[in-house]
Design a protein around this nucleic acid. Structure first.
Length: 523
RNA sequence: GGUCCCUUCGUCUAGCCUGGUCCAGGACGCCAGGUUUUCAUCCUGGAAACACGGGUUCAAAUCCCGUAGGGAUCACCA
């Protein structure tokens, strides 16, 4: 860090950055980090941030991917000043900005003009229907992260700038668009570092000014492999093999090929995950959204992958990033994606949310992914208590669905297991001490009106003080009666959310379930 | 394989340019203890790294050379 080979900065023009994904799949976290840095730099300099869709691969590009990327960018809160229409239902109409269109597939005539110019100048030539650009000079350029790069002409080859289908290659399109759109800083993944010599040569030949280049190192899996969508297929395949799964109910031949690593089709990965109740690794921004991460935490974590503010501050908001961001503090080495740390950031971010925001986000999450919670979400007073209970302990929004499930299941679905360690300890031990306390306390609880959390708390407190017992002696049996486990939020809050009727019914069921043990030990 | 790039605790990293303040600091995770009616939270403490080998120097994580390991790229993909 702190590259000694600082590239001479010279621009007095307004700062313009861009994020230029190709719509061949979903926006993944690596792309999100690139977009974040480009966005933050533009904001820092009161410049413009452009979103451009690089859809020159006719086979692999799709409007669905474009819409997904737009949606994910918006979810992250990375607004673009120029680019596709923000409204994802028709991103092609009414594009924003004066330098459009922002879909490369709509700019063919522009590329053609410049390609012809190169041909006329003798700098490019036809080769089997494609057009190649001559690379016959040494190239030197400067990268803000990696410093000065020198490439000898001998290591360079003529490369295709227009494919036989008439579309420009990425190299041609990117160079023309950046130049014409006034992009001053090209911030992108390091897989483009080697390509930059091509781009610089093209720029020079066309007489365009070179932008400042900023290449970002890669984000890797914990095992060091590059993080990619194929990781999902990998995990699913392994699980399917371990479980000896031979069919997912459709396309058996293709599925066999999938298992045989002949294809990585996502539909099979998804189907396997569904059948085996398996969690696939989150790779895409959408995966993290579905898992209940919040944008602030994801972005904060991503910013720290390869960049840091130079002091010990790690948790910060976007305003701080805009203030502090700089290329001089971007690292050169690849970094591994650490889910545990992200999770920690996410739970911190969740706990800092104001309660209104939290309940809105949690409500959306539950309704979208766990419709069985819809009744609870639509019961505002009760849902407010539910939020109060889980905001402090949620690591992700989605996790709440599992933790709080006992509140929404039918009373008859609560499981009581006499072999459970906690059941033995808290209910059965010492001649069913816990059960007897539970039965006795239930008679007090029946009298409690109104049945609020505060009243319940006071009742438990008084009950325990009178008998000189620890509050856990009452709370733990109650937890088991209500949830089947000893893990619930604050016991008073738990009772409040559960309500008097169901609390008492569950206590009765619990006593019933262990009546045999009571009788035996009673003799 | 050619070319280019990278290498500090398990992980993300500070420190490296301008050698001494570093027997290397922070964070996540981990371990131990404490608070709490459970879980979580929170608090305190702990283990844990300069890839290796040479050199320069009074002094090297920091400068130089080499080795090893890792990554990128070598498409009419981007």
């Amino acid at each position: 860090m702190g590259n000694p080979l600082q590239c001479a900065a010279m621009t007095t023009k307004p700062i313009v950055t861009r994020f230029a994904p190709s719509p061949t799949g979903a926006l993944h976290v690596g792309g999100a980090r690139t977009a974040l840095f480009a966005w933050a730099y533009a904001r820092q300099h009161k410049g413009r941030f452009i979103l451009r869709i690089e859809d020159t691969d006719q086979k692999r590009s799709s409007p669905e991917s474009t819409k997904g990327i737009l949606r994910d960018m918006q979810w992250l809160g990375l607004r673009w000043d120029e680019g596709p229409n923000h409204a994802a239902d028709d991103p092609y109409a009414n594009q924003l900005g004066a330098n459009g269109p922002y879909f490369q597939s709509q700019r063919l005539d522009i590329y053609t003009k410049h390609i012809n110019q190169l041909i006329e100048a003798g700098l490019a030539y036809e080769d089997d229907g494609a057009i190649r650009f001559r690379m016959d000079k040494d190239v030197t350029f400067c990268d803000e992260v990696f410093g000065e790069m020198k490439i000898a002409a001998a290591d360079l080859e003529d490369f295709v700038i227009r494919k036989a289908d008439g579309f420009p290659t990425f190299h041609m399109a990117v160079v023309i668009d950046d130049a014409l759109m006034g992009v001053t800083h090209v911030i992108r993944g390091q897989e483009h570092l080697n390509n930059t010599s091509k781009h610089v040569a093209l720029l020079d030949a066309l007489g365009f000014e070179r932008p400042t280049y900023v290449h970002l190192s890669s984000i890797l899996n914990p095992d060091g492999s590059k993080m990619s969508k194929r990781d999902k297929a990998k995990v699913a395949r392994k699980a399917a093999k371990d479980a000896k799964l031979t069919s997912v109910g459709f396309d058996d031949d293709a599925f066999a090929a999938f298992l045989d690593k002949k294809n990585d089709e996502m539909k099979f990965a998804l189907a396997i995950a569904e059948q085996l109740n398996l969690d696939l690794p989150e790779i895409n921004v959408a995966d993290f959204r579905d898992s209940g991460y919040i944008p602030a935490a994801l972005l904060n974590y991503l910013a720290l992958l390869g960049w840091n503010p130079g002091d010990d501050i790690e948790q910060f908001d976007l305003d701080f990033l805009i203030q502090q961001f700089g290329f001089d503090r971007i690292g050169k080495s690849n970094s591994k994606f650490d889910r545990a740390k992200l999770l920690s950031f996410n739970s911190d971010a969740i706990s800092k949310l104001d309660t209104g925001t939290f309940s809105m986000l949690l409500g959306q999450q539950l309704v979208a992914h766990h419709p069985e919670y819809t009744d609870l979400v639509n019961d505002p007073p009760r849902f407010a208590m539910f939020c109060l209970a889980y905001q402090p302990r949620a690591h992700t929004l989605d996790e709440v669905a599992d933790m709080g499930r006992f509140f929404i299941i039918h009373n008859s679905e609560v499981q009581y297991n006499a072999d459970d360690k906690q059941v033995k300890k808290n209910l059965l031990k010492n001649n069913c001490e816990g059960l007897r306390t539970l039965a006795d306390f239930a008679t007090e609880l029946e009298q409690l009106t109104p049945f609020s959390g505060e009243d319940a708390h006071n009742l438990i407190k008084r009950y325990c003080e009178e008998r000189e017992m620890n509050m856990g002696k009452v709370a733990q049996p109650l937890r088991i009666a209500i949830s089947g486990t000893v893990v619930t939020p604050d016991i008073a809050l738990t009772l409040d959310i559960m309500g008097k009727k169901d609390t008492l019914l569950r206590i009765m069921r619990c006593l019933d379930a262990f009546s045999a043990q009571m009788e035996v030990t009673a003799e």
